[in-house]
Design a protein around this nucleic acid. Structure first.
Lengths: 180, 180, 180, 180
DNA sequence: TATGAATGAGCTTTCATTCAT
DNA sequence: AATGAATGAAAGCTCATTCAT
């Protein structure tokens, strides 16, 4: 699975072949079929694993007792940090989340930590308290999520560095974007 | 090229084959080779054309004389509108802009209208006038661009509608995100 | 036809395509079909023309009145000279005379000058007069013909030059080969 | 490789396709690509193998102690016999030795038995001893080689039989052709 | 008569998948 | 359980041939 992810990152799913995976993973060609029925399955497995991994990371250090501002920033920072630490996972999830290659059921899977629900509940709480602007919560979610994704993509192609100062600017911007 | 774009949208580049293109476009298999040397070339051509088209749309109705706020909103609205009107083009450009399948030269091509420069100059003007926060201009560009992209992706999978009211909220949010 | 012969010589029939012929001959692709029904026909036409041309050259300056020795040498020299002057024709004839690509009827065609008969009659006369060894006349023909062909092939790949001195040696050798 | 040689003999390289090879050899189409990267490679491999085989046969029974006449005849007979026993190999080697399809390196390869050198050394020895005419040794080689080739080609198209008597005549003729 | 864009049969080649070892 | 040679369906691509202009 690691070999698969690496290859997708390097060459795009488009040109990842099984024989490349075999070679990279140093296994015989038949071996993989003891674990995955076909190529689609291994890609799906990589997708699921990446989603699980990201789910874990997104809620790391999240404490319901912290202030709304702190919780919001924690979630945004965690996402940004995940993207910085695991670019291959992040990009893979991003490109396949909206691709016809991934079936809707898998796309909409919930991770073990329910990170999506956690984010949504923070949004809804903020809106109830009159801190965040009233808007469709999914739209709001998508908005703050999109800011992180976009920033990361620019970072990946080295448009700019991401140091402490930039990170703080981004967290601020995403917070201000949805204030009333 | 239209057939190619349709198929990419429907099934993903991954599973677009030449024979599907031939059938969809109602041309003989050899015909395409009079115009494109191979499959990569036709995909590149579609990418270029889409980029040109988007470039045009992004600056539609943009008047340098308008206020900063109006110009900013015009650019954001144009991008959003392009994404709403031409989802296939928009998604295709988005996924290929960061894919190894597209060579860096083509990825970084400038469109005829220099829309990228127009956006950047608005950002820099806003920063000079103390309206926008001081941050790396490309990072700022990526940020407001990313908001639109992300919102569109949620819209495409029907997470929410995009009516006048949502559109105004998004434009507002992206404006506020980068204010000082 | 000249373009076809050139290309066969340069790249081998194997890789001569019609589009190469069109380009080399500076004619439109359809034009050729006004003159030749298909690719095989043009190759056959080239073969026939080359055979006609060679047939003419082989009997040039041949006078029935001359001595047997002089007539024999004339025929051998003519063949050698033709091979030196028209390497493309000579090689083409040689390779296709025994190829399944050329139908037996065309292979066995008689040229306008009946050069084959002329050679055979010289051989038979020599055998009758007790000058040439008694052997199947076609075998004898093939033998002296083969000496020339083989020498030419070595010359074409520049194994050695063919000056007056070598030429005389070869004519001598072929004469002596069949003496009683 | 045997299937390939058969097909080349039957229809000419010109019309040998991979699908014909697969069928004839009773292997799946993909199998061949585990051993040969492309069509050219398999033809080259057949050429090399045939050359090796012929090289072996040419020096069979050759003893340096025998008289010059006997050694000469042995070499000529071996070549003739090889051509009679393995017409497909012989014709294939002959046509490709001067074809642009075969790269010069492969064309000029030395077989394991250095048969070419053996023949040349016999020629040079004969010339030193004043038995053979003084002429460029490669030209002389080509000459006696060419007699055999040419005779074989006539035999292949059944112009004449090749029995003991004809064979002796040919060996005699080639010996006499190069005597002083 | 000359043209060359369009064609599609058929070629080469790839690659996911099988299965005997 | 691991292997990798063999497979063949299906892909990319070529090129002789047609036909409207």
């Amino acid at each position: 699975m690691a070999a698969t992810l690496d290859l997708i990152h390097e060459e795009g799913l488009q040109s990842v072949t099984f024989s490349k995976i075999f070679k990279r993973a140093n296994v015989g060609s038949g071996t993989i079929y003891n674990y995955f029925a076909n190529k689609e399955e291994i890609v799906h497995a990589v997708y699921k694993e990446s989603r699980m991994h990201m789910g874990e990371c997104l809620v790391k250090g999240f404490t319901p007792e912290a202030s709304l501002y702190e919780r919001f920033k924690r979630l945004q920072l965690n996402r940004l940090q995940f993207g910085i630490d695991f670019p291959k996972e992040y990009l893979f999830i991003d490109s396949f989340s909206f691709s016809p290659y991934i079936s809707p059921e898998i796309r909409n899977m919930d991770d073990a930590h329910n990170s999506r629900e956690v984010v949504l509940s923070v949004i809804i709480e903020g809106q109830k308290n009159g801190i965040f602007k009233e808007m469709e919560s999914h739209l709001c979610h998508q908005l703050i999520h999109g800011i992180i994704t976009s920033i990361l993509k620019g970072y990946y192609v080295q448009k700019y560095p991401l140091n402490e100062i930039q990170i703080q600017q981004i967290l601020e911007a995403s917070w201000k974007a949805i204030l009333v």
